[in-house]
């Protein structure tokens, strides 16, 4: 447990002292979302209607963009082999890396999401559902993404490959995340949709660290 916390602390320090890397995902998040009003036109009728979905899609892409560096530095400098040899179970190492990834991207996306909601003229009633759905959804993105990141370690063209592996598995989170915001806008009850998102999170939490650990182990063989 202590080892896990130390590992998370190390990753957070690396992320914040490295600076730009963690910020890139958020910059991409905001930048990509600002493209849509240019593409579909800044109609104040249309923007709130597509806003929830666009913010979710862009969050998905931003989370995916940051996946490649999740294990690659450790893989290249040999830290990963030390993690495998260390007494800390590899599943917990994977979980610690996933938590650190979420803290350095998912949380930042959460903070930036209200800004985008303002850009898209989302009514005040949609803010809380957007934040809560992202709070439940983004950890799932980190969990599923970790599997893809670990599987593609040392692969050729790993960046494109990650998107091919991970995006199809992200679709359920996107569907229900966007439905929550839509439901709130239409004045429907969205509690059951949040429960589905919570269910995805629990399912991913139960399976992803093991799959990631298996993928990490085979990557250093």
């Amino acid at each position: 447990m202590i080892g896990m916390l130390l590992l998370i602390r190390r990753d957070l320090m690396l992320a914040f002292r490295g600076g730009t890397d963690a910020a890139m995902a958020v910059v991409f998040f905001i930048l990509a979302a600002t493209l849509f009003p240019f593409g579909v036109g800044p109609d104040p009728e249309v923007l709130p209607r597509i806003g929830g979905g666009v913010i979710w899609v862009v969050a998905l892409l931003a989370a995916m963009l940051s996946l490649e560096r999740m294990f690659s530095a450790d893989y290249e400098d040999g830290s990963l082999e030390q993690f495998v040899l260390s007494p800390l179970p590899l599943v917990l190492v994977a979980l610690a890396k996933i938590i650190a990834h979420w803290l350095t991207t998912g949380v930042l996306l959460l903070v930036a999401a209200p800004v985008l909601a303002v850009f898209y003229n989302l009514p005040a009633a949609a803010f809380l559902p957007l934040i809560v759905s992202m709070l439940l959804g983004t950890p799932t993105l980190s969990l599923i993404g970790a599997i893809g990141a670990a599987l593609t370690l040392g692969a050729r063209r790993s960046g494109v490959l990650i998107s091919l592996l991970v995006l199809p598995l992200y679709i359920p989170v996107l569907i229900f995340g966007a439905l929550v915001v839509d439901g709130a806008l239409a004045g429907r009850d969205y509690g059951n949709l949040l429960m589905v998102l919570g269910g995805f999170l629990l399912l991913a939490l139960a399976a992803a660290p093991w799959a990631t650990a298996a993928a990490l182990r085979q990557s250093i063989e």
Binding site: L151, G154, A155, R156, L161, L164, A211, E221
Partner: peptide, 28 residues
């Protein structure tokens, strides 16, 4: 399927591709 095929052929060592693709197949 496309992910599985690409992952199989993404490594210089075919054994690694096979193993990575196997994990992906089980997750998928």
């Amino acid at each position: 399927y496309l992910g599985h095929i690409s992952l199989t052929h993404a490594f210089d060592n075919p054994a690694r591709g096979a193993k990575a693709a196997a994990i992906l197949a089980l997750v998928g």
